[in-house]
Write a protein that binds this DNA or RNA. Structure first.
Lengths: 234, 234
DNA sequence: CAGCCTAATATTGTCGACAATCTGGAAATA
DNA sequence: TATTTCCAGATTGTCGACAATATTAGGCTG
């Protein structure tokens, strides 16, 4: 269907990254899983999916192995792959790791961010402020806008492995959890204020404070999640 | 060659986990890479390896995709996989992440560890004390014993995803780096003392202190690494 | 009717072959 | 001689077929 075209104007310095069928199917499957198109715990049927994407089982199996690496599916030998089903406990585990790693990211970002970087963060927050007023925007902010902010901060850390770990793996799992549970964090105003404080600290190159604020920010979200879980359990 | 046998005495509760060829080759390749049997940056030749392990390229390619997920090889489309070559900068990135995550692990471990767990840690340290006296033991302690301790502490955290992340991925990368650079941390006595302090804090269920001590412990190792790198650069 | 055994079916695991792409070196040209 | 072009070899990407294993459906027995 969609042809691979060069978006950038003129000839790009990178002559179009050669992509294999397994690569493409990996991306499509990941989007589908993270987007909630597959029910949690549902089985991955190889012949069926191979037909759906018009490829043979070879590349498909390689794509599935890569999904396993991202922890998006679980594979049992001679049985097959299932879409992971995240329960509340596992979500809390992820929040604990985020709390720790994004604190680190903030500390590093405070030491590296330029004035332009900080302005870019402010712009993102201003954008969020506009969107937060409408109900649709509020919903957007809660679901994706929050991750956008964290995404950008993490990229300022400069630690490539940290960036890959958070943006390439953990955030996909978070999206999956939100899609599977349709949970709404529902504290946009407070989160918005906390985001601003974090940018303040980064702008002042106060890494220690930035780390503390980010950890507290995520700890707050975790506490909210825990209280929701307790409520739905009883 | 080596047959798969049940190590445990009597019939095991788990009736031997079915393993596929790709699984076995993945384990063997990972050990070989982490053990330094492949030169850093060396190319992975599929037909050659398939012959060596007596399997076809299909399962081998799946094993390679899983190695890519562990960040032990890098794959370029139409070119092939290479064993990762970790430079000093990347090693520092890993230490930064360890500092953060193992601090978390310690805090969690302090809240969960039983008396028996603590005694087990003490036993491990006592073992290390015996080994540390001989030159061979010193070498062992520096290379593997240190990771043994961290491995055990991390397992006490109870956070499954954290355990998998540290013990299933990052530690393998550390071993790879040590094998590739033949670097010796060379501060066994200090590290040994720090390990004891960490166990003290865990035993007293002082999670905050345990986190601080572990972070400092790894920060010390990171500082040592950085000074070594500067020395070898000039 | 419940439970178990058995056979038929479906799915995963593995293999060998072919197509597409990259790599290295020889030959031709300036 | 330096550079470019092109070809042959090697390697990766993809496919379809077969073998091994798991799952399901049906019938049998108690």
């Amino acid at each position: 269907m969609a042809e691979i075209v060069d978006i950038s104007s003129g000839e790009s310095p990178v002559p179009a990254p050669a992509r294999t069928l397994a690569d493409n199917v990996f991306d499509q499957l990941r989007s589908a899983i993270v987007g909630g198109e597959f029910a949690p715990g549902s089985k991955i049927n190889e012949p069926q999916l191979a037909e759906r994407y018009g490829i043979s089982r070879g590349p498909l199996r390689e794509a599935i192995r890569r999904l396993e690496g991202c922890k998006l599916v679980e594979i049992k030998p001679n049985v097959g792959a299932k879409v992971v089903s995240l329960n509340g406990l596992q979500a809390i585990e992820i929040y604990e790791i985020r709390e720790s790693l994004e604190g680190l990211a903030c500390r590093l970002a405070a030491a590296r961010a330029t004035a332009a970087d900080c302005e870019s963060l402010r712009n993102l927050l201003a954008q969020h402020e506009l969107q937060i007023e409408s109900e649709n925007g509020r919903r957007y902010y809660q679901q994706e806008g929050d991750l956008d902010f964290h995404f950008q901060v993490v990229h300022l850390s400069g630690n490539q492995r940290l960036i890959q770990l958070l943006c390439g793996e953990l955030y996909h799992l978070l999206r999956l959890y939100r899609a599977q549970t349709s949970s709404q964090p529902s504290r946009p105003e407070q989160a918005f204020r906390e985001h601003h404080r974090i940018v303040d600290a980064i702008e002042e190159q106060d890494g220690e404070l930035a780390e503390i604020l980010m950890r507290r920010h995520i700890a707050n979200a975790k506490a909210m999640l825990i209280s929701q879980l307790k409520q739905s359990d009883t």
